[in-house]
Computed example of a mutant assay.
Amino acid sequence: MTTHPYDREITALVVIDPYNDFLSEGGKAWGRLRAVAEANGCVPHILQVLKAAHAAKLRVFYALHHRYRPGDYETWKYIAPVQRLAWTNKAFEYGSWGGEIHPEFVPKLGDIVATEHWCSSGFANTDLDLQLGKHGIEQLIIMGLLAHTCLESTVRFAAELGYGVKVVSDATADYSDKQMYAALEVNIP
């Protein structure tokens, strides 16, 4: 892992969707992610970066996907494929083990949890930008899941808003190497 110097007054770590359904044995998406996540060392790298951020006294923000609740999508006129999948699979179901944050990545006192995003971007229809601005944050270190959806979308939105952005490429995963490559090597750069 490469290290970079950061000004902790203006830099924050953003952790995207570290739910049990993604990162834990028995999670609804773990079976699809497992090979890529294990090959990339995703789970230990997320933990390593999170511990380093806390030790360096960087602010840590969580951008969490909306946790499914019955009635969420039934009356919607248009549903994005990622939302339809969440509805069908009851991914990150509120009140369920899968909808809880992986036990090693639970926010600590002082970490900030933004309002949940409904589709892919941690910024769209959330208070993440407001929270970052209130804390004087200008540079983001971003990690989490999935590389080709929420991570990529959040990175793009952050760049559009004028944040300096670094992605921790070994602290993410996806359903396939092809999707990882497309997100990390083609789209994000």
Rank of each mutant, 00 (worst) to 15 (best):
residue 97 W to E: 08
residue 46 I to H: 07
residue 71 G to K: 04
residue 27 G to V: 04
residue 40 N to R: 12
residue 88 T to E: 15
residue 137 I to N: 00
residue 89 N to S: 06
residue 103 P to Q: 00
residue 23 L to S: 09
residue 90 K to I: 03
residue 123 F to A: 14
residue 180 M to P: 08
residue 63 A to E: 08
residue 126 T to F: 11
residue 122 G to Y: 00
residue 182 A to R: 08
residue 79 I to R: 12
residue 135 H to V: 03
residue 43 V to Y: 05
residue 28 K to V: 14
residue 45 H to C: 15
residue 155 V to C: 14
residue 126 T to R: 07
residue 166 K to I: 10
residue 172 T to V: 07
residue 148 H to K: 06
residue 62 Y to L: 03
residue 75 T to Q: 11
residue 156 R to E: 10
residue 4 H to S: 15
residue 146 L to E: 00
residue 122 G to H: 05
residue 173 A to C: 12
residue 91 A to W: 12
residue 143 M to W: 06
residue 45 H to Y: 14
residue 144 G to S: 09
residue 58 L to A: 11
residue 44 P to A: 01
residue 50 L to V: 08
residue 147 A to N: 02
residue 25 E to W: 08
residue 139 Q to W: 05
residue 148 H to E: 07
residue 166 K to Q: 15
residue 172 T to I: 09
residue 65 H to W: 09
residue 91 A to D: 10
residue 125 N to Y: 14
residue 41 G to V: 02
residue 36 V to H: 08
residue 116 E to G: 03
residue 126 T to Y: 07
residue 180 M to T: 01
residue 90 K to P: 10
residue 118 W to Y: 14
residue 88 T to F: 14
residue 54 H to C: 01
residue 161 L to A: 11
residue 94 Y to P: 04
residue 100 E to N: 03
residue 135 H to W: 12
residue 96 S to K: 05
residue 141 I to G: 04
residue 6 Y to F: 14
residue 145 L to K: 06
residue 124 A to E: 15
residue 182 A to G: 06
residue 51 K to C: 07
residue 47 L to K: 14
residue 77 K to A: 09
residue 106 V to M: 04
residue 28 K to M: 03
residue 138 E to N: 15
residue 158 A to T: 10
residue 104 E to M: 03
residue 63 A to R: 03
residue 117 H to T: 00
residue 9 E to C: 06
residue 147 A to T: 07
residue 151 L to G: 09
residue 75 T to D: 15
residue 68 Y to I: 06
residue 56 A to N: 00
residue 101 I to F: 00
residue 108 K to F: 06
residue 185 E to G: 13
residue 161 L to P: 08
residue 161 L to W: 04
residue 85 L to W: 13
residue 19 Y to P: 01
residue 73 Y to A: 09
residue 134 K to S: 12
residue 178 K to Y: 11
residue 184 L to Q: 05
residue 49 V to E: 09
residue 100 E to F: 05
residue 158 A to C: 11
residue 81 P to H: 01
residue 163 Y to K: 03
residue 37 A to E: 07
residue 115 T to V: 08
residue 143 M to A: 04
residue 162 G to S: 02
residue 184 L to R: 00
residue 3 T to F: 09
residue 158 A to S: 05
residue 104 E to A: 11
residue 35 A to T: 07
residue 180 M to H: 04
residue 6 Y to N: 12
residue 144 G to T: 03
residue 125 N to S: 15
residue 171 A to V: 03
residue 12 A to Y: 00
residue 91 A to R: 09
residue 176 S to C: 05
residue 23 L to I: 10
residue 81 P to W: 04
residue 142 I to T: 03
residue 126 T to W: 01
residue 102 H to T: 02
residue 29 A to P: 13
residue 169 S to F: 10
